[in-house]
Nucleic acid binder design. Structure first.
Lengths: 154, 154
DNA sequence: CGAAGTTGGTTGAAGTCTCAACCGTCGTCC
DNA sequence: GGACGACGGTTGAGACTTCAACCAACTTCG
């Protein structure tokens, strides 16, 4: 009921739980990555997007949009990953401003190597902790949040 | 049902929504802070913890634990906030290793100034987007996640 | 055509975070 | 009492992010 002012005690409590839960969850996930393959959580997510795109290729701007990253942050991140041989950049045909980012074979191998530990961590810290209904509700809820937040982007 | 291997399509979908939702949500929240008072989201949360503690004072280690921050990150953050006059550090009586962090009057004023926009953003991008049941479930779910992730801390 | 505005992406400096090493206390156990 | 290990916190260098300025290529429109 889109009230104003502060939150009720119950809302307050849910909100705090959300804050703490997400903080500790990403923390746990990041630790899981450090303990394994050399691919940070952010890099992993980037690779996943690429892996699902045709030709394992995406324009920088699309990548930035999908991952909700600033263009500049993406530029720097891809710089580092390119130096490590995980991706390559190529000019886009037809629009000389555009740049495509393509996953290399080495990148693919690393992604494959990193996946099991990643999935295991997601299960362990999120999926398996919740009932199927809770997890489904969580997904639906955050999907709505995503739409709203994205729409409000200046 | 603590399965192994990859996620089902439905789980996969929930997971992606969660990822995108949280990313865009914190992004929106941070933008809301930038557009207002000079207090980042992280600093705001730190101030909230202090504001609720007796004497508006907490030990560095407690603060770090509550906020799920590394000790070193907290040290740096408090350094900067102390320079701005928002908090002060004082030795703790009885344990010469300990350091207390106390919110100053100026810090309190800034927190009060920042609160309305913060709450409004939380409402706008999270609370009001969900049904009360969804929000409650979200809270319960993330509370469980928080407990699990915290427990797994090496 | 060509000026003005928009889009796609990069740059570099300043700000923030991480990681490992470190210092001074505290607690324990002999 | 005095090792020895754990605890609480800081340090500094390197890695990562942000922010604003920038460039080049498109687009729109007179």
């Amino acid at each position: 009921m889109t009230g104003t002012g502060w939150l009720t005690d119950e809302q307050q409590c849910s909100w705090r739980s959300y804050l703490e839960g997400t903080a500790r969850f990403v923390d746990a996930l990041e630790r899981a990555h450090d303990d394994g393959v050399p691919l940070s959580l952010g890099e992993y997510n980037l690779m996943v997007q690429l892996s699902e795109a045709p030709e394992r290729t995406l324009r920088m701007s699309e990548l930035a949009d999908f991952l909700a990253l600033s263009r500049s942050r993406l530029t720097h991140t891809v710089d580092r990953m390119e130096r490590r041989g995980l991706v390559v950049r190529r000019r886009v045909a037809g629009d000389r401003r555009g740049v495509n980012c393509t996953m290399t074979e080495a990148g693919w191998s690393l992604l494959v190597a990193a996946a099991p530990a990643h999935v295991a961590a997601v299960r362990r810290y999120l999926v398996d902790v919740l009932t199927p209904e809770e997890f489904a509700t969580l997904g639906r809820a955050m999907a709505k949040v995503a739409v709203t937040a994205k729409a409000s982007r200046a």
